[in-house]
Every structure is written in C-alpha cells, then in structure tokens.
C-alpha cells in the first residue's frame, strides 16, 4: 500500500444519501479475479446510458471532475455489501479520499486497506462541502485536518491505528503475522 502523503485536490460531489456498494460497483462486474481495472465500471449504472455512452449531467462525467481525487458524498456512503471491489474501483479511478458525515463500517474498513481515506466530518462541514462542488481542499492526514479554500483548517476523525497504517503505508497483515506467538498460545489454551 502506498503511504498517504498530503493531498491537494478539487472535489467532485455526489449529494445522494445512502449510496450503496451496488451503485459504486454493480454485481455484474464482480466476476473479476483481479483488484485492478475496475475504475471504468465505477458508478456504472449512473455514469453510462444503457448503450454505454457517458450519461450527460452525471457529476463524474463533467469536464471539471477530471482529475479530482476527493469525492464528497451524502450521508451513509458505502452501505450494503462487503465487496472490496467498491474500494478498488474508487482507487483505480483515481479517488483517494471519500468524505461524508457517515460512512458504512465494512466499506470504511475496506477503503483503509487500499490507501483510500474514508473521512468522516461533522454535519456543518459536510453541508458546506456538499454545497461547494469543485472546492480545492488540502488533506493533512498527519494532523487530521482539512484545509478549505478560504484557509480555514478543520479537524476530521480517524481511528489512530488506521491513520498510522495509511500514513506510513503499513500493511496490517504484517502486524497480524507478528502476533503469531500469541495466536499459537491462544489456540493451545483454548483448545482450538
């Protein structure tokens, strides 16, 4: 996993609440056995017309969305399935930060394992971000602060271990494997 440095990008906004994983990546694209290449199917049902042409008016298809690495979404982003393909598709497309006032548990966990920052902000900041698509933001993960275009710096929350792993590109599996003696002792003591 790539370490997450400071990031500066304009935002693309999808204001709908409860954007579920079936919208992020529809099930028909889950037959892949690879983690890459899913970016072209990101939000497929909203992004393309039935004959595969770009859906005019969909936020990601507007010229100003090109190159945006920050997605601001309505409350409860990523609900539904455990499919990690949702995080892979966002990352493969070029998204590095997803901001919402609430993010679903499994999606959050999947995002963190793939260098994608799931950022939960308070309702006030969320409302401001939803109302200002294209805002240029700077994310400072080390300080857990988000800098707005007017220079204001506001905090966001991220669990400390997740922040550490993301910041340094630490792979959680390495941390788990280092616990092998404790795992062996647990198995012995508990008849596993």
């Amino acid at each position: 996993m790539e370490p997450f440095g400071r990031l500066r990008s304009r935002t693309v906004v999808l204001p709908a609440t409860d954007i579920d994983t079936d919208q992020i990546i529809p099930a028909r694209y889950l037959t892949t056995t690879s983690r890459t290449g899913l970016g072209r199917h990101l939000f497929a049902g909203w992004r393309y017309t039935t004959d595969g042409a770009p859906q005019p008016g969909f936020a990601l298809n507007r010229p100003e969305a090109a190159g945006c690495a920050i997605l601001v979404a309505g409350r409860n982003f990523g609900c539904g399935s455990s499919r990690e393909h949702a995080a892979w598709a966002l990352y493969d497309y070029g998204i590095r930060v997803v901001i919402s006032s609430e993010i679903a548990d499994i999606f959050r966990s999947n995002a963190l394992k793939n260098g994608l920052l799931p950022m939960v902000v308070d309702a006030g900041l969320h409302a401001w971000l939803l109302a200002h698509p294209g805002a240029e933001l700077e994310v400072d993960l080390d300080a857990c602060r988000l800098r707005l275009p007017d220079g204001r710096e506001l905090p966001f929350t991220l669990e400390s271990f997740a922040r550490h792993c993301l910041l340094h590109g630490v792979d959680e599996l390495g941390h788990l494997l280092a616990q092998t003696p404790a795992i062996e002792a647990f198995e012995r003591q508990n008849g596993r």
Binding site: S82, R83, E84, A87, I106, S109, N110, K113, N114, E172, L173, L176, L177, Q179, T180, I183
Partner: peptide, 11 residues
C-alpha cells in the same frame, strides 16, 4: 472484505 479474508486465511 477480501483483504481481511486474506488476513483470516493467513492468521
């Protein structure tokens, strides 16, 4: 998620 499936398989 799938990464965690890997964690459980391995540990």
């Amino acid at each position: 998620g799938t990464t965690e499936v890997g964690h459980v398989l391995a540990t």
